[in-house]
C-alpha cells in the first residue's frame, strides 16, 4: 500500500502570528502562549492535552489561514499514540460500516452524467427529485463512501487505506464530474486527498454550487420564501470554506434571510452529534442548548442543514423549540413550489 504523507509545513506554524487554530477553538479554552506550546508539541510528535480534548469539529482547518493542516496533524498523532477519541466498540462499528463490499457497484456501470453521489445516505434517494435534479443519475453505497468520518475516530490511516480504492471505483465509471450530495465527500476530494498527495482523476462538484446553478436556470419560477433561516454548518464545511458563499447566494435567490446570530459562519457550533459520540454528554447538552437558543433568539423559522448527520443530531432539539429542520436542497425545492420528500 502506498504511504501517503501529510503535506505540513512546520515553518508556517513557527511564524504564525495568531495560533488561531487552537486559540479560536470553541471547545478548549487556550490562550496564544499555550496554543503555541501545544502546537509545537504536536509538531514534535509529543503528547498534548489537545490530542485528548479535541472535539474533532474540523474548525481549526478553517481557522488556519495559512493553509496548513492542523487538524489532520492532530488526528494523525492521535492514531500514532493510540489515543482514541471515541470508545473502542464505536470505532469497531464505524470501521465495519464503511467496509466496501462487492454488493453495490455493478448497477452503476453505465450511469450517465450528470451524476450525483449520495455517499452512504440511501434514505435521501426520494429527495433527489423535481426540477433541480432532472436528468441526474444517482450513485451511492460503500464504494462511493469517502471515508472521511474516520477523522472523528482516531483512525485516519483507514481513510488513506480505503480512499484510493474508492477513487479508483469512481474513476472506473468514467465520470468526469461527480456532484457530491454530502460535502464531506467534496472536502475529501478537494482538501484531504491533496493534503496527502492522493490523486483525484475526476472533478468533484459541491452540491450547493450545483443547486445554485440549477436555481439560476429556474430563477423565473422561484417564489421567494420570505422567511428567516439559521444555517447549521457541518464539520466538513471547514475544509471547503471557499464554497460557503453559495449558502448566501442560494438564500438570496430563494428569499431566505440568514439571520445574524452569534454561532454562525466561522463561529458556528458543531451540531454536537459527534461530541455525544465522544461521550462528552455535558458538552453535548451545552453546545446544543447554546446553538438552539441562539437560533430561537434570532427568530428563525427554519434551521437549514447541509449534512444528514447534523440533521439527525439536531433536528429533534430545534423542532422542540418550534423551528423547522430542513435540508438545503429541500428548502430550494420549496422555493420552486415543490414539496420536500415526506411532507404531506
Amino acid at each position: 500500500m502506498a504511504e501517503f504523507k501529510l503535506k505540513f509545513n512546520e515553518k508556517l506554524c513557527a511564524t504564525c502570528p495568531t495560533y488561531d487554530c487552537l486559540v479560536r477553538c470553541q471547545y478548549m479554552d487556550i490562550d496564544k502562549a499555550t496554543a503555541k506550546a501545544e502546537m509545537q508539541k504536536i509538531i514534535n510528535g509529543e503528547d498534548s492535552f489537545v490530542l485528548h480534548q479535541c472535539a474533532t469539529c474540523y474548525a481549526c482547518e478553517e481557522y488556519c489561514k495559512r493553509g496548513n493542516h492542523p487538524f489532520y496533524l492532530i488526528t494523525d498523532l492521535q492514531e500514532k499514540k493510540g489515543i482514541l477519541p471515541i470508545p473502542k466498540p464505536l470505532v469497531t462499528q464505524w470501521v465495519n460500516i464503511g467496509v466496501p463490499t462487492r454488493k453495490d457497484i455493478q448497477e452503476f456501470y453505465g450511469a450517465k452524467e450528470p451524476v450525483i453521489s449520495l455517499c452512504l445516505f440511501p434514505a435521501y434517494i426520494d429527495s433527489i427529485k423535481g426540477k433541480l435534479f432532472e436528468d441526474l443519475s444517482i450513485v451511492l453505497g460503500r464504494h462511493f463512501f469517502c471515508q472521511l468520518a474516520y477523522l472523528h475516530f482516531g483512525k485516519p490511516s483507514l481513510i488513506r487505506q480505503r480512499l484510493p480504492g474508492i477513487i479508483e471505483n469512481i474513476a472506473k465509471h468514467d465520470f468526469k464530474e461527480v456532484i457530491c450530495f454530502h460535502d464531506e465527500c467534496y472536502s475529501t476530494f478537494t482538501s484531504y486527498a491533496p493534503a496527502y498527495g492522493i490523486e483525484v482523476p475526476f472533478k468533484p462538484i459541491h452540491l450547493f454550487e450545483y443547486l445554485y446553478n440549477r436555481l439560476k436556470e429556474h430563477e423565473d419560477e422561484i417564489k421567494p420564501l420570505n422567511t428567516k433561516v439559521a444555517y447549521q454548518r457541518n464539520c466538513s464545511t471547514r475544509l471547503a470554506p471557499k464554497k460557503e458563499h453559495f449558502v448566501d447566494d442560494i438564500f438570496s435567490l430563494i428569499g431566505a434571510e440568514r439571520v445574524e446570530r452569534k454561532y454562525d459562519r466561522e463561529n458556528a457550533l458543531c451540531c454536537a452529534g459527534i461530541i455525544r459520540g465522544l461521550q462528552r454528554y455535558d458538552l453535548f447538552v451545552d453546545v446544543q442548548k447554546r446553538n438552539v437558543e441562539d437560533m430561537v433568539n434570532a427568530g428563525v423559522e427554519y434551521c437549514v442543514f447541509n449534512c444528514p448527520a447534523c440533521f439527525d443530531s439536531l433536528s429533534e432539539a430545534v423542532t422542540k423549540k418550534g423551528i423547522k429542520p430542513i435540508m438545503m436542497h429541500e428548502l430550494c425545492k420549496l422555493a420552486l413550489g415543490e414539496k420536500p420528500a415526506g411532507w404531506k
Binding site: 471515541i86 470508545p87 473502542k88 459527534i274 443530531s313
Partner: peptide, 9 residues
Amino acid sequence: KEGGFMMLT
C-alpha cells in the same frame, strides 16, 4: 474506552 453510547438517528 471499553464501552460507549451509540449515536442513534
